[in-house]
Write a protein that binds this DNA or RNA. Structure first.
Length: 607
RNA sequence: GGUUCCAUAGCUCAACUGGAUAGAGCAACUGCCUUCUAAGCAGUAGGUUCCAGGUUCGAGUCCUGGUGGAAUCACCA
């Protein structure tokens, strides 16, 4: 009795193949061992590179069922699959590992399927909405290295979720009010002498940052003075005239004092102009902006609702608290005794506002891990309030970026400024490109654009290749590298493929994929790698982790370069393979381009 | 002190969620440009996966206890 399983190749190639194999294995258990093993229970893993094959089935756990050693179990299943599944060409067994080698014609079908799909790796709409909040800067200082990680992550996650089939809305919640803004405003008022970004020749955000620093310096002087006159340090911090003035300014702002609001608007607009420029350079964008000056009063109705529902309780001083002891947390203040809101009050309100604006299935907050506790509390409260969307709230908590010298401290001037850093990367890319590729025949403008693409690719890839959850080290020397596991390496691979494409056109190569070829190892491995792409994207989406895409794209580029070095594409002794190899190259190029786009990185046609 | 997270080659990071001999890059060393872009390729060397137990066919991965580091525990945001 024979069971022939034909593998049907659709867009989710990898799934199709492994499903067929699993069905075959299930059948094998039935026929050989009279045992029902459900397809869902069967796990396949990729074969390690040092062994023959592409799919591996581990037989250790099944000795009891087969009544045979792991090796014997593997052999009999392998035998069965070769006989009954047409895609399985051969097998080998090493200890308890059954490695399956699929036929060349199957891999050629796979390549054809990839080739036929312009949007390979991109899923059709799944009908779900997801909001991604990222960036969320304060308007009192320019963006720095930490913001770069945040922005690149947020943007990339949004791209990845979009490719996973979600309807994505990117939002930025700007912290444009509060005591820190007043500090910059006050210092400007006192020491600014009417300076403007134009007169100072500075970007607006940098100018405001200058006054934020100025405030801190003057404030420190006052504290020292007070301490010298006998105050305790603690008292001095509270009583220094500057801080009192800043606090008064905040009150004036809240009561809508005209002059204060006018100054606030003027300075914030300078900052926004500066930010726009930086975002533009970074290549990130938003679909919607929220400003805390509009949302900071929200959330009080939710406090009332919580009181009614008995989720919150009042203390003697009239302050309102959430009791989260049942959830393993503490009590948390949600409204001050004087009725004013705290951070979490407005976040509750903003959460509700976001849902009203865009009824999401998921809402992602890209915020550093120093706020883990805050979001834990926020999400638990929203769930307690019975919000249907509560389960979809997710804090993408990323680790801090350290410098070799340690932690970045804005007050100690050890921050790496975002604008400066990106400019450095462009300069390095320029220098390096001029040394490397003499004559690409670029106009000055094109050359500049190339430096931008390469420099930005380097810094983005550097920050995205690491698992977002992990704290990472930013070594300026290393980040500026353009060889090895870097963005430019992948961009270079793409440019190489473009060169192949151009050459193929010159030669008039027919790129139809001949289904009867026999494949070299390097060719097969490349196709196997290509077949993994859609699943990697889905996994990156499920884990909110661009690093999975970064790692994949690097592996693919590396595999391609091995192929490129090992085999000649326009090989005169092998003319029947020209079309296939060009098609293979172009599909690798296509996937590299798509993958890099998911990271927010462009790829050049030449470099 | 409580809670949470982290510890893998000299350095920076992986390891498909419990599978084979733990992999890449950088740094070091050896080869490869008259051949499709050498920002590349091939190779050498580098490991007690922080320590001690446990769970099982099998542990870098899971559980317990240590050690070291980070974050947080505000009527700041």
């Amino acid at each position: 009795m024979m069971f022939i399983f034909a593998v049907k190749i659709s867009d989710s190639i990898k799934m199709d193949i492994s499903l067929s194999l699993k069905q075959g294995i299930s059948k094998a258990f039935q026929e050989l061992f009279s045992h029902e093993l459900a397809v869902e229970e069967i796990a396949l893993q990729p074969t390690r590179k040092d062994f023959e094959g592409s799919h591996t089935f581990v037989t250790f756990p099944y000795g009891r069922i087969s009544k045979k050693s792991p090796e014997e179990t593997g052999k009999s299943i392998g035998e069965f699959l070769v006989a009954n599944v047409d895609a399985v060409a051969a097998y080998n067994v090493v200890k308890g590992f059954l490695n399956l080698e699929l036929s060349d014609s199957l891999w050629l079908q796979v390549l054809s399927a990839v080739n036929a799909n312009d949007k390979y790796g991109v899923q059709p709409s799944n009908g779900e909405k997801v909001m991604v909040e990222y960036s969320s800067p304060n308007t009192n200082k320019p963006l720095h290295l930490g913001h770069l990680r945040n922005n690149f992550l947020g943007y990339s996650v949004a791209q990845i979720l979009d490719a996973c089939g979600y309807d994505v809305l990117k939002v930025n919640l700007v912290n444009d009010r509060g005591i820190h803004i007043c500090k910059s405003m006050l210092a400007y008022q006192k020491f600014g002498e009417g300076e403007t970004p134009e007169s100072a020749g500075m970007k607006g955000d940098h100018l405001i940052g200058k006054y934020y620093v100025k405030f801190d310096q003057e404030y420190k002087k006052e504290i020292e003075g007070l301490v010298a006159n006998g105050s305790s340090e603690e008292d001095a911090k509270k009583q220094a005239p500057l801080i009192l003035e800043a606090q008064q300014m905040l009150k004036n702002w809240e009561t809508g004092d005209e002059d204060t609001v006018a100054l606030w608007e003027k300075m914030n607009n300078w900052v926004y102009e500066g930010f726009d420029q930086t975002y533009n350079t970074m290549g990130v964008s938003f679909d919607k902006m929220y400003k805390e000056s509009n949302t900071y009063l929200l959330g009080k109705d939710l406090v009332d609702e919580g009181l009614e529902k008995g989720i919150f309780f009042k203390k003697d001083d009239n302050s309102v608290w959430a009791n989260l002891t049942e959830e393993g947390l503490d009590e948390k203040l949600v409204l001050r005794g004087d009725g004013t809101s705290v951070y979490i009050t407005q976040d509750m309100g903003t959460c509700e506002l976001k849902y009203a604006d865009f009824p999401f299935d998921k809402s992602v907050y890209v915020v550093g891990n120093e706020q883990d506790y805050h979001f834990d509390v926020l999400f638990k409260i929203m769930k307690k309030l019975g919000r249907s969307y509560g389960e979809g709230l997710y804090h993408l908590s990323y680790g801090m970026v350290d410098l070799p010298s340690g932690k970045m401290k804005s007050r100690e001037g050890t921050v790496v400024d975002a604008d400066d850093l990106m400019q450095d990367m462009f300069d390095t890319a320029e220098k390096h490109t001029q040394e490397k590729s003499e004559n690409l025949g670029f106009s000055e403008e094109e050359a500049k654009e190339l430096y931008r693409i390469i420099g930005l690719g380097a810094i983005k890839y550097f920050l995205l290749k690491v698992d977002p959850r992990k704290r990472m080290l930013f070594d300026p020397e290393e980040s500026i590298e353009l060889t090895g596991n870097t963005g430019p390496f992948i961009q270079y691979s793409h440019a190489r493929i473009s060169a192949i494409s151009r050459r193929a056109k010159e030669l008039g190569v027919n790129t139809a994929i001949d289904q009867n070829l026999s494949l070299e190892d390097a060719e097969k491995r490349l196709i196997v790698e290509l077949s993994n792409f859609p699943q990697k994207v889905l996994q990156a989406g499920a884990d909110y982790s661009p690093s999975i895409v970064a790692q994949y794209v690097y592996d693919l580029a590396k595999e391609y370069n091995r192929f490129y070095g090992e085999l000649k594409i326009f090989d005169d002794d092998n003319k029947d393979k020209w079309g296939f190899r060009v098609a293979l190259s172009e599909n690798v190029g296509k996937v590299l381009k798509t993958g890099m786009k998911l990271l927010g990185i462009d790829v050049p046609e030449r470099m």
